[in-house]
Amino acid sequence: MEDATHRPAARVVCLDADGRVLLMHWRDPLDGHDVWEPPGGGLDPGEDHLQAALRELAEETGLDPAAVRDRSVVVDRDFVWKGRRFTGPERFFLARFETARPALGRDGLLPDEREQLAGHAWVAVGDLAGLAGLDPPGLAEIIRRL
C-alpha cells in the first residue's frame, strides 16, 4: 500500500429525535470491506469545512443542511479506502433532526457512490461499540464532545 494521504474533509453527525445517529454503510469496491461512518467527504476547491459539511450532507442523504450547527470537533482519522490509506484530521459537525429516522434521498450521489453505498442505518449511540466496520471507532465519544 502506498504512503498515507491527507485529504481535508468534513463529516456530519446526524442525531434524530430519539438520539440515534445516522451511519452510511459503504462497501469498498476493491476488497469488499464494510465501513459505517457519518455522512461527509472531502473539501472541494475554495470550500471551508462547514461549506463541505453542508454540501456533503445534502448530496449523500438529501437531508436539510440547515440542521447543521456551526460548531465542530477535530477528529484524527486513519482508514483505508480503495487500497489507499488516508490519515489526518477531519472536522465533525453536529446536526439535529426533529423527527425519528428522517427519510434519506440518494439523488445527490455520484454514480460510483450509488454503487458503493450499501445502505444506511439510524443507530442508538449505545449500540455503536459492537458495530463491525465503524469508523471512526470512537464515534460515541465524538458525539459526547459535540
Rank of each mutant, 00 (worst) to 15 (best):
A58C: 04
R85A: 09
F93Q: 04
V74R: 15
G46R: 00
E98P: 10
D64Q: 09
Q116C: 15
G105T: 08
P65S: 10
P102S: 12
A100Q: 12
G62L: 02
A66V: 04
A67T: 08
G62W: 03
A118T: 02
E47M: 04
E59T: 00
D64N: 14
L54D: 03
R84Y: 11
E98Q: 08
P45A: 13
V123D: 01
D70T: 03
G88W: 03
E56I: 02
P45K: 04
V123K: 07
L63A: 12
R114A: 12
G105Q: 12
D76T: 03
G105R: 13
E60D: 07
L50D: 00
V125K: 10
W122V: 03
R85V: 05
L128C: 10
T61P: 01
E90C: 11
G130L: 11
A95C: 04
R101W: 00
L104Q: 08
V68C: 14
Q51C: 00
G119F: 08
R84V: 07
R106I: 03
Q116I: 06
A67Y: 07
V125C: 08
G108C: 02
G83N: 09
P65V: 08
T61F: 06
G108N: 00
W122S: 06
E47W: 08
D64I: 03
V80P: 00
R101S: 14
F97D: 05
V74I: 13
F97K: 04
T61W: 10
E90K: 05
L50N: 00
A121K: 03
L54I: 07
A52T: 03
G126K: 07
G46V: 08
R84H: 14
E56S: 13
F97N: 07
G108K: 07
P102V: 01
G126F: 04
R55H: 14
E115K: 15
P89K: 06
R91Y: 09
D48P: 01
D78A: 14
S72N: 10
L57H: 03
D70A: 15
F97E: 06
F97V: 01
V68E: 04
G46N: 07
E113R: 13
T99F: 01
L104Y: 09
P65F: 10
A67S: 14
V73T: 13
R101N: 06
A58G: 11
E90R: 04
Q51R: 13
E56C: 10
V125E: 11
F79K: 04
D112N: 13
W122I: 06
A66D: 15
V74D: 15
V73Y: 08
G119A: 09
A53G: 08
F86A: 01
A52Y: 09
A53F: 11
A67K: 14
A52W: 10
Q116S: 15
L104R: 11
R106H: 09
V125T: 11
L117I: 12
G126N: 08
E98Y: 00
A52M: 02
A52G: 05
H120R: 02
E115I: 13
P89V: 09
T99Y: 04
E115L: 15
T87A: 14
R101Y: 00
F79Y: 15
F93G: 02
D70H: 12
V125M: 06
Q51M: 04
G46D: 05
D70I: 01
E90Q: 07
R84W: 13
A53W: 12
A58T: 10
R91M: 06
G88F: 05
D107T: 10
P111R: 05
E115S: 12
G105P: 04
